[in-house]
Amino acid sequence: MYLTRVRFNTARSGARRLLGSPHLMHGAVTMAFPVRPARDGQGPRVLWRIDRDHRSQTQLYIVSPRQPDLTHLVEQAGWPTLAEPGWATFAYGGFLDALTAGDTWSFRLAANPVHNIRLPHDKPDDRTRRTAHRTPRHQLRWLLDREEKAGFQVICKDPAKQLTKLGDEHELIVRDQLPLQFRRPPGKQVRQDVRITRVTFDGRLQITDPDVFRRTLTQGLGKAKAYGCGLMTLAPVSR
């Protein structure tokens, strides 16, 4: 497994074009691999996420079973004339293997929190409709409902540090809620307009099941993984 980071030059039109379309970004990431990994849900897959940090930097993170070649992406959206290759790739397998139960980490996750509903006029035999959670309270609950099956537990706050009686029980925040709408190229039996809501979670967690947690880190969490959702990354807990 590999973890890759590449910084975008947002002054370039190619960067703005990619950042404005999750479909185009998905294609650019896919083209970094001569052989595309199988998407059968049984093994590691290619996951990606866009981060915008406090220094006004925009970076792409990729987790993949094979090492990528991002020459084409740097030529479109980076600094292609610099001597450095424009991206950094790190061996990820050793880090994953070293994770153990009880480890505590800071984490960031971009996800697509959704649920299935029936509208008042739907008939009993109608299929349920997938819709996004709109409020931070429901988005937080979406993640907390999945933590056990994902091999981790979000750390609870000391009650004395809770700012409110309800909704602030965990070291977890929601930020950068971003509704996205874009079009896919024409194709058969697929809806051309895609609408998703991408949310970023920042928090602290404790690993409860290392094997399951490794699967979460390499297969993603939730829906819309092809469009920049599902990738969780870890960082040491700052004291």
Rank of each mutant, 00 (worst) to 15 (best):
Y2V: 00
R5C: 09
R5P: 00
V6R: 04
F8S: 06
G14Q: 09
R16H: 02
R16G: 01
R17Y: 07
G20F: 05
P22L: 05
A28N: 03
F33D: 00
P34Y: 12
V35G: 03
P37W: 02
A38L: 14
R39H: 03
R39Q: 10
D40G: 05
G43W: 04
R45K: 10
V46F: 01
L47Y: 12
D51A: 07
H54I: 08
S56P: 01
S56Q: 15
L60F: 05
I62L: 05
I62H: 01
P65Y: 07
R66V: 13
L70T: 04
T71C: 08
L73I: 10
V74Y: 03
A77N: 12
W79Y: 15
L82Q: 15
A83E: 13
P85K: 14
G86M: 05
W87F: 13
A88R: 15
A88S: 14
F90A: 09
G93L: 07
D97T: 06
T100E: 14
T100C: 12
T100W: 07
A101F: 03
W105F: 12
F107Q: 10
F107D: 03
R108I: 11
L109K: 08
A110Q: 12
V114W: 03
H115R: 15
H115F: 13
I117F: 13
I117S: 07
R118D: 07
P120Y: 07
D122I: 05
K123F: 13
P124M: 11
D125G: 09
T131Y: 03
T131I: 13
A132M: 00
Q139L: 03
R141T: 10
L143V: 11
L144H: 02
L144T: 12
R146H: 13
E147V: 02
E148D: 13
E148R: 14
E148K: 15
D158F: 11
D158N: 14
P159S: 10
L163G: 11
T164E: 11
T164H: 08
K165S: 12
K165R: 15
L166A: 04
L178H: 09
L180D: 04
Q181K: 13
R183F: 12
P185D: 04
P186F: 04
G187Q: 13
K188H: 12
K188I: 10
R195A: 10
T200P: 00
F201I: 04
F201K: 01
L205G: 00
I207D: 02
D209N: 13
P210K: 01
P210Y: 01
T216L: 01
T216F: 00
T216G: 00
T216P: 03
L217F: 02
Q219S: 08
A224P: 00
A226G: 09
Y227S: 03
G228W: 08
G228M: 06
G230W: 01
L231V: 05
L234E: 06
P236C: 09
